[in-house]
Design a protein around this nucleic acid. Structure first.
Length: 493
RNA sequence: GCACCGAUGGCGAAGUGGUUAACGCGCUGGUCUGCAAAACCAGUACUCAUGGGUUCAAAUCCCAUUCGGUGCUCCA
């Protein structure tokens, strides 16, 4: 069992990550606000947390992982109103889509999913606790705010120094009157026509930050092991969570904080106005595989800014093919009995490299490299006829270990792409799908088998023109013919 | 504007003081093939944005410049 070292934003240092005072690692990850389909930036964060979660569990540490779903906020209220549906109906659709996307990307479910709207009493309780100590205060319109002046450590996570900021000086006039510029909303008073809850705090809805404090402590206790999220959440969201939670409990909130850096798309910040904004579904409809998206998004370590490009996505597809082909070759077996000592050493080196790399602040790039080195060594030995059956068993074990975190060997891609097309059809968005993809999937297996058989026949009669025509035609529809000693195979690209 | 992070081959990307600068993709060559493809193997950065400096030794530390990103406001 390796000691897992992880950068801690709070201390600014790489520190050992381990459960304290409980058998399971208690972790909280800021989940989605379900007002739209998730984009690849969202999923990079969830994927990197998935890598951590899988590795922790692989190292023999159980997890108690809570993810929240924000199902009430300004954007949801605005969009639901525009769509003319209750917010519950509006969010249900996107929440369902979100979990489908997690599954498509091989992201394991957390032990617990907490909805903001189902934890309102917990949030109210927390705010009351703060109000009793005059840390929370109500403004004239009925909203409640957190008094930052009462939390001297404010800024310790994001390393901000607020001493130079004078309360009330040159501050935009907000809709509500706060005592100090930085004070943030705990509870928002109801506005006409908005979804609201009748509580002891008055009629209204929770502020954004309070839900995470309430839900994390409700399910994980006042103090827990790890809190994770995208780098943008560090300030103000996580800073505010700390302020609320630690003010209420008087104890440390999360010990360890993990922040995943943003990605760039084609060298630029992803944004709708740049035209480089992609949801997972956009990419699936373009014909990219879910596995390739997963592999690419986790191949760059979480603390590095990564540049997402379509070229690198295509490369990931090929890299996965290499791994899958190798995996199949090992599974197929047929190697002579015995043991090749050189390969024993190569296999052990790969396993050590894999584990040490991930234990070292989740260096996924290095872990990947260790496995590819094994692939090359084993392929070369297999070609030379020196690979032995006992080696293969070990190689498969190490490959399984690797796949326990990377999760790309099993080929679910065609099924996932089909599901995406079915969704597009239901949404009337089939026009966004790549034409080759539609052509490919409209061709049934039996039809392809028939064409492949016809080509084989044509080859026998040395009618190569006809054989090549069939081959090229299928290729244009994304179907690849592979001639081998054992006969002809085909696969969908 | 202030603060922080980054810049490594055609592309993506490890490596943060000391053997020949990982790995993947691509490309080139080879094996195989009717020709291809697929698969596998081999080769593929005398050099780490630029200019200075520190050191016996720097991609790795320091300073400056240029470029990219992020935070200061909703954002994964």
């Amino acid at each position: 069992m390796a000691t897992i070292e992880l950068f801690n934003t709070l201390s600014g240092k790489i520190e050992a990550l381990a459960p304290v005072g409980a058998p399971a690692l208690r972790m909280y990850c800021c989940g989605p606000t379900v007002y739209d389909y998730g984009h690849i930036g969202n999923f990079r964060t969830f994927l990197q947390v998935d890598v951590l979660r899988r590795f922790v569990r692989q190292q023999g540490i159980e997890t108690k992982h809570v993810m929240n779903v924000t199902d009430v906020d300004d954007k949801i209220i605005r969009n639901a109103a525009a769509a003319g549906v209750p917010i519950g109906e509006y969010t249900a659709k996107f929440e369902r889509a979100f979990f489908e996307d997690l599954d498509a990307l091989g992201i394991q479910r957390s032990e617990l999913v907490a909805h903001a709207t189902s934890c309102i009493p917990d949030m109210v309780g927390l705010i009351e606790k703060l109000a009793a100590r005059d840390i929370a205060y109500q403004t004239e319109d009925g909203s409640w705010y957190f008094r930052i002046a009462r939390f001297p450590e404010y800024g310790k996570l994001s390393k901000k120094d607020f001493e130079g900021i004078e309360d009330g000086a040159r501050v935009d006039v907000d809709e509500y009157e706060k005592d100090a510029a930085r004070d943030f909303a705990l509870w928002k008073a109801v506005k006409p026509g908005e979804q609201h809850w009748e509580t002891s705090l008055g009629s209204g809805r929770p502020g954004w930050h309070i839900e995470c404090s309430a839900m994390a402590t409700k399910f994980l206790g006042d103090t827990f092991d790890l809190h994770a999220g995208g780098e943008d959440l560090m300030f103000p969201h996580h800073e505010n969570e700390i302020a609320q939670s630690e003010s209420a409990s008087g104890k440390t909130f999360a010990r360890h904080w993990m922040h995943v850096r943003f990605l760039l798309v084609e060298g630029k910040k992803m944004s709708k106005s740049e035209g480089n904004f992609y949801t997972l579904r956009d990419l699936l409809l373009k014909g990219y595989r879910a596995s390739a998206i997963r592999f690419l998004l986790i191949s760059v370590p979480y603390r590095h800014q990564m540049n997402f490009t379509f070229e690198s996505l295509a490369e990931s597809t090929n890299a996965i093919d290499r791994l899958r082909t190798f995996h199949q070759r090992m599974l197929k077996g047929g190697f002579a009995e015995g043991l090749n000592e050189e390969i024993v050493a190569a296999t052990a080196k790969a396993e050590q490299g894999y584990t040490a790399s991930l234990a070292n602040d989740l260096n996924t790039a290095e872990a990947r490299a260790a496995i590819f080195e094994l692939v090359r060594a084993a392929n070369a030995a297999a070609d030379a006829g020196t690979l032995r059956a006992a080696n293969v068993a070990e190689i498969l074990r190490v490959l399984d270990l690797f796949d326990g975190v990377f999760a790309v060997l099993e080929d679910r891609d065609a099924a996932l792409t089909r599901a995406a097309l079915a969704w597009a059809e239901a949404e009337g968005r089939l026009g966004e799908a790549a034409p080759e993809l539609v052509a490919n999937l409209s061709l049934g297996d039996a039809e392809i088998d028939a064409l492949v058989a016809e080509r084989t026949q044509a080859k026998k009669t040395r009618n190569f023109a006809r054989a090549d025509a069939i081959r090229n035609d299928l290729l244009a529809k994304g179907i690849l013919i592979e001639d081998s000693k054992d006969g002809v195979r085909w696969k969908r690209k």
